[in-house]
C-alpha cells in the first residue's frame, strides 16, 4: 500500500561522515556487487565494453570543491549519495501500483519488483535522484539498506550491516537506529552536528551527513622559509659586466 505508515519508532538509516570519506568508491562497488547477486533483479549494465557504457547504481559518489568565502585553501569533499529512507517519502505516495512502500517496523523504503510497472514517476518524485530504472527488467531499483543482510541470520553478526558500511575502508559510513536518541549513530549526529539534505523539500530524510570539520589555518605557510639563504640575484660573467656597465651609464 502506498499510504505511508505512521512514523515508526525504529528508523534505520545511514550516517555518512564527509570529513572522513576519501572518495574511493568502494561503497559503490560493493553495493553494486551485493545487489546484483542477491535480492531483486540484478543491477544491469548496458553496452559495458562499448562506446556508451551505462549502468544502474544505488549509490554514487560525487566530488565537490569548496572555496571558503573568507579566503584560505579550497577543500575537496567526497559526497556519497543513496536513498535517504525519508519519513515523508514522496516516491511512495505517487506509486500507482503499490509497488513502492515504506516498512512500518523499521522505516526502510522498498520496491516490490513483481508489481512495479516501470512508469518512473517515483524517480521523478524523489528530489535526491536516488532511484534508477533498470533498463533490462524495466523495474525501479533503489537502496534496500541491505534488508537482506541486516536481518540475515545466516551471516556472521559482523556482516549484518549494509554492504557499503561493511566495506568502507575509511570508516566514513555508519549504520544504526536514528529513531533511538541514545544509539551510537544518533549520538554521533548530535556530537558532529549532522544535517539532513534538502530540508526545504520537507521529505524528512532519515539519513544524516556529518559536515567536514573546519581546516586549520595559519598565516605563515613554511616556518623554515625565513632562515633560508636568500637567492643571489646579481648576475655574473658577461651579463654581470653588462649589468655593471649599464648601471654606470644610467645611474
Amino acid at each position: 500500500m502506498t499510504r505511508l505508515p505512521p512514523p515508526s519508532s525504529v528508523k534505520l538509516g545511514l550516517v555518512i561522515d564527509l570529513d572522513t570519506c576519501v572518495g574511493c568508491h568502494a561503497c559503490v562497488v560493493s553495493c553494486k556487487g551485493w545487489n546484483t547477486e542477491n535480492y531483486g533483479v540484478p543491477l544491469a549494465d548496458t553496452d559495458p565494453y562499448g562506446a556508451d557504457p551505462q549502468g544502474v547504481f544505488l549509490n554514487r559518489v560525487h566530488s565537490y570543491e569548496i572555496t571558503p568565502r573568507n579566503g584560505g585553501a579550497a577543500q575537496t569533499v567526497h559526497f556519497p549519495k543513496s536513498c535517504l529512507h525519508c519519513e515523508d517519502a514522496p516516491c511512495v505516495t505517487v506509486c500507482p501500483t503499490g509497488a513502492s512502500y515504506k516498512r512500518a517496523e523499521d522505516g526502510i523504503v522498498l520496491v516490490n519488483e513483481s508489481s512495479c510497472i516501470g512508469c518512473g514517476l517515483c524517480a521523478w518524485a524523489c528530489p535526491y535522484g536516488a532511484r534508477e530504472m533498470d533498463p533490462v527488467e524495466g523495474v525501479m531499483k533503489k537502496c534496500t539498506l541491505c534488508v537482506d543482510r541486516i536481518y540475515n541470520e545466516n551471516l556472521p553478526p559482523e556482516d549484518r550491516e549494509p554492504a557499503c558500511v561493511r566495506t568502507c575502508p575509511a570508516g566514513a559510513r555508519h549504520f544504526g537506529d536514528l529513531g533511538d536518541s541514545t544509539s551510537k549513530i544518533s549520538r554521533l549526529v548530535e556530537d558532529r552536528g549532522g544535517v539532513a539534505l534538502m530540508p526545504e523539500q520537507n521529505t524528512k530524510p532519515v539519513n544524516r551527513y556529518l559536515p567536514p570539520r573546519p581546516r586549520d589555518s595559519t598565516t605563515q605557510i613554511d616556518i623554515l622559509a625565513p632562515f633560508l639563504d636568500p637567492v643571489i640575484d646579481t648576475p655574473d660573467g658577461l651579463l654581470g659586466w653588462l649589468d655593471r656597465a649599464l648601471t654606470k651609464i644610467t645611474p
Binding site: Y64, E65, T67, Q75, T76, K81, L197, E200, P212
Partner: peptide
C-alpha cells in the same frame, strides 16, 4: 542545500560520480 554544505563556502563539482 542538496549537499548540506551551506555556508562553508562556494561549492562546485570537481568530478562527477
Amino acid at each position: 542545500t542538496a549537499t548540506g554544505l551551506d555556508g562553508s563556502g562556494d561549492i562546485r563539482q570537481m568530478s562527477p560520480p
